[in-house]
């Protein structure tokens, strides 16, 4: 039960690198539902806009901007083109840093599938 976060995240990071090659594209309805899940649960930390006074960005965006400071990866989750669905799911279910995990009463497995579909909708759109 106490699978360590570092192990899980390391596995997820490895998945991230592989993106979602060969998987069928989710339907528009799934992506739309995923956007609703994103807007409700993720946007308040990972969206654009100001953070607390003295902080230029919201906490999740700020964290990812620092993390990807030496890379072209966007700090805005909704603009990413490199996320693998499994990576999204591991992070949501395990949490990372000060972001807690989310229970199934908050984000159901179906919601999570849709969220992953939304956050990976742009994969392949870039020149990667």
């Amino acid at each position: 039960m106490k699978k360590t976060i570092s192990t899980a995240v390391a596995a997820a990071v490895a998945l991230c690198a592989s993106v979602s090659v060969g998987q069928p594209r989710p339907g528009a309805a799934t992506v739309d539902h995923g956007k609703q899940v994103y807007d409700y649960w993720c946007l308040p930390c990972h969206g654009g806009g100001l953070g607390l006074p003295g902080f230029a960005e919201l906490p999740g965006t700020q964290q990812l901007r620092i993390k990807y400071r030496d890379s072209p990866i966007s700090p805005l989750l909704a603009e990413r083109t490199d996320l693998a669905p499994e990576f999204v799911k591991v992070i949501v279910r395990q949490g990372v840093s000060f972001m807690p995990q989310f229970r199934k009463t908050e984000i159901s497995d179906a919601d999570l599938d849709a969220l992953a579909a939304y956050l990976t909708r742009n994969n392949g759109a870039s020149a990667r």
Binding site: S6, V9, P44, C45, L50, G51, L52, F55, L58, P59, G60, Q62, Q63, I66, K67, R69, V96, S97, F98, M99
Partner: peptide, 19 residues
């Protein structure tokens, strides 16, 4: 809003690799 999490730890310019 959720802005308070800016001071909940994590990465900072001084400690950019904290997970």
């Amino acid at each position: 809003n959720m802005s308070i999490f800016a001071i909940a730890g994590g990465r900072t310019p001084q400690n950019p690799d904290s997970a």
